[in-house]
Write a protein that binds this DNA or RNA. Structure first.
Lengths: 336, 336
DNA sequence: CTGAAAGCGCTTACAG
DNA sequence: CTGAAAGCGCTTACAG
């Protein structure tokens, strides 16, 4: 049923070693030979057995992906970026959602799982909260994504800068200025600071533009559309138009759009709003948003880890991603 | 570094075959021999290499767990039950969160992953929505948990009966009767019908008790505490006490408790409330709740699958779990 | 650049 | 009940 390297070798008229080398992108294979082998594999629909590979190679070719949340669009996109890149390097990925603190302990203590993976990608900010020295008790290479840690390779977005971009775009408009931040459940294992950073950048740049943000104009909602709508309503019903709102996430900005529609307010004139994320649906909603290349961040993290697994052993590296503002109808300029 | 079966064999003074047999709970090993080998393994801290096992045995000893949601307490508990039982049978589990429809296609099409698992546990109700014949396009054994499917072994809770239990408990009390249901995001791949079933059972039993539930007394919230509080407030502020509320989930009932506290209403007298789940924290909150043995359901599903993987090939089996009511302070009887 | 061979750590008939 | 041996499907020095 299942094909083996042996059969591919016969078909291609080479030895199994050569097939293996092709499989592993080994440099010393003549281009023609490589092509012939690849053609054979393709024709036969050959899929190598990863388990055999692991036993023979002494590596597991599996990476653990540890996330504290799974249900949001951001993490879905991040996951896609990670998995796709890992797959391209012929690594498998095993997912560990960190709901509840017990799970991380369990993960780290599970000898079976430890056997399974060669490295870890972790999406989190302050490991120091859980481990005093800020290090995961493991000898596997670790890469942090959507966060920063001095001990490990880290891939992060400059969220503060994103907030500044929003401020610069809104500060030129008339009307009151508002911001809606996001808080998370207290019982989550790792705190997420990205929302705070965005708001801080927003405040700082507004201050600099001579239009400081009133403390009372900052509200905080939990991460769901219904709550966003409530916060938006609060603002829209008690303020004279026009009003400018920076939402720390697209989902929150969506709440503003929906409430504005309900109140028959014109978005772009009466209400200007900027979200954060630039998720795929933002474009069709005409939402101006601070764009973050989520998939690319996942891919970058995967590359860093694969790099380490391939032998790189230098100091921790930092990859900074810079957000950019994508302007759409929700921040129309007067006269446009 | 890593120990092998070979070293265990030497230490125990047996052949590697015997060690392997002990590892696999093979019957034909003398009890004393078995003990000696186990002692050796324990002393050395031996952990078998699962990859070698897979190559040699031709099975992957991995089960895929496909869930549409991960972030809730219910799924966390279910997952724990599944993983623990699978582990006891020396199976690994790989988790696949189904956020977005594309992911299931991707999972099923990934040849690497297909290689990885021997069977699938899936938490979902209507596979028929995605596949006309109600079957997953795979030849792996499939077990459905927290749902029912005629094609596969299924483990489910009688949610309707749970609603009936709540109705029977509340129907004896004075005051108006209310129910709060839960709806889910439309874009979720698989619809969850458990909440509807609970409410239906509640309605039916109330009808039977001669106290039919008014349509206008049923509200529906999305699954988060803030929304539950809003729905609770709506009821509590517009009704004369006492009032009886059945919440389709503990989280929703918690919203009722919190709003009652805010309005200085006495729970158990002014407001009687019954939740559903009986999550661990319900006890300390004094919440009467319909108990479902979530971990046990996970364990049962795991057992069914392991059974199939061990050769069982009979018709699909159904395992029905029956909920029971756990009465606490939130439904105090008058005079207690 | 490539083939033949040894080896990865297990499992499993095959003989006893 | 148990050992010795072959085999699972790969990888990787080792020679050429």
């Amino acid at each position: 049923m299942k094909l083996t390297i042996q059969e591919v070798a016969e078909k291609a008229g080479v030895g199994v070693g050569t097939v293996s080398r092709v499989l592993n992108n080994h440099k010393s294979v003549r281009p023609e030979t490589r092509e012939r082998v690849q053609a054979a594999m393709f024709e036969m629909g050959f899929v190598p057995n990863p388990h055999a590979r692991r036993v023979a190679g002494g590596k597991s070719y599996t990476v653990s992906i540890i996330l504290q949340v799974i249900g949001t669009e951001f993490y879905l996109r991040l996951l896609n970026g990670l998995e796709k890149t890992l797959e391209a390097h012929r690594y498998d990925s095993a997912l560990f959602p960190l709901i509840g603190r017990e799970r991380i302990e369990r993960y780290l203590n599970s000898s079976t799982l430890a056997y399974q993976s060669d490295g870890i990608v972790m999406a989190t900010h302050n490991l120091g909260e859980l481990y005093p020295d800020g290090k995961l008790p493991t000898r596997q290479p670790v890469v942090i994504v959507d966060g920063m840690n001095l001990n490990y390779d880290s891939v992060y977005l400059d969220n503060r800068f994103g907030g500044e971009l929003a401020a610069r775009a809104l500060s030129g408009f008339d009307g009151q200025m508002y911001a809606i931040s996001v808080h998370q459940d207290i019982d989550e294992v790792f705190a997420k600071t990205v929302f705070d950073e965005r708001i801080e950048g927003f405040k700082a740049a507004l201050e600099e533009a001579g239009k400081p943000l009133l403390e009372s104009h900052v509200s905080t909602v939990s991460f769901n559309l219904d709550n966003a709508r409530i916060a938006a309503r609060e603002i829209l019903e008690n303020t004279t138009m026009p009003v400018n709102i920076f939402a720390a996430a697209d989902l929150v900005a969506l709440g503003v759009l929906e409430e504005a529609a309900r109140l028959n307010l014109e978005v772009g004139r009466d209400v200007r709003v900027i979200g954060f994320d630039d998720h795929p649906w933002s474009a069709e909603r005409g939402l101006t948003s601070v764009h973050q290349p989520v998939e690319a961040m996942g891919a970058a993290a995967a590359e860093l880890l694969v790099d380490r697994l391939s032998g790189y052993d230098g100091a921790p590296r930092k990859v900074r991603f810079e957000p950019r503002l994508v302007e759409r109808a929700s921040t129309l300029h007067p006269g446009d």
